[in-house]
Amino acid sequence: MRRDYLAEAEKKYAKLERLYHVGARQAWDGKQVLGDLIKKHGGIRLEPAKKRALAEIFSTILWGELAAWSISADLALQLEDTEAKMAATSQVFDEARHFYVMRDYLLQLDCEIPPLDGYTHTVLTELLDTDRLVDKLLGMQLIVESVAVTLFRSVAKAGVEPVISELMPYFERDEARHVGLGVLYLPKLLATLGPIEAARLKLQQLKIVTLIGWGTHLKKRHFETLGIDNNDGFRRGLRLNREVLMGMRSAEGEDPPGVLVGDPRLDFVNDWAIDLFFPRFGAVVPGWQRAVIGVVDNLSRVGDRALRLAA
């Protein structure tokens, strides 16, 4: 038994080190990739309304990448095991690349970059400010990075604009490695959590997921302008998040402490919530549902203003 445990741990550390080497092998030149794509498609051609919507959504990604850059640098500094340090160091380079590529793309869009909304600002600043490694790993590596992967897939799938659609797979491939760091290393930290700390972490997770949900309502009209179906995005995101969290289960299939993996028996609640709040594109939506969704959208603006007070 002890030998199995050691073998499993050794395999995990080897995988962590491999994340660094794969990252080095798959590193791409952001300036060149973006320049080539712009040349290939003859620039970014979009009507002004779509440009504004794209700027609204990708400004969130821009600041998210900046926060991820700082948080991964924090992780590289604070993680004790050298294999995990290597994976985090590789992530620092990825995030710096993502930031400047996204910044250059938004500058090419030639429209004003909007300020960060209250929901995203709260999530990112709290992850930046915390000294707790488990919060940073769970919040950034597993929740925020999973949301980013889902968004990148949605944008690529919707074919919003050819340059960004072809750019997204580069981002997505890197983000998948970043999720890997959380999945491989977090269980070691979670194993030391006491019951109070585990409960606190679950509440923190609930807080982040709540803020992301309301933040999506706030940006809903921009997603619609770009032809991105939030219903599909949420369903895919939910499935990805479940797979990611299940990846942290022990060899015996036990859930890690301090993490809300979600009970499959409650999946129907998620299905109802997604379909009620974000009906599929083209679905027949009765008047009462449109009215309640309108109230929800207005409430998302109230919450945004309330959270901006703390910014």
Partner: peptide, 19 residues
């Protein structure tokens, strides 16, 4: 939704997802 009816509710999100 249960009393008046609304937009379609698709069960089993993981299987029914178009992704």
């Amino acid at each position: 939704q249960l009393t008046l009816g609304g937009a379609e509710i698709r069960p089993a999100s993981r299987e029914a997802s178009a992704g």
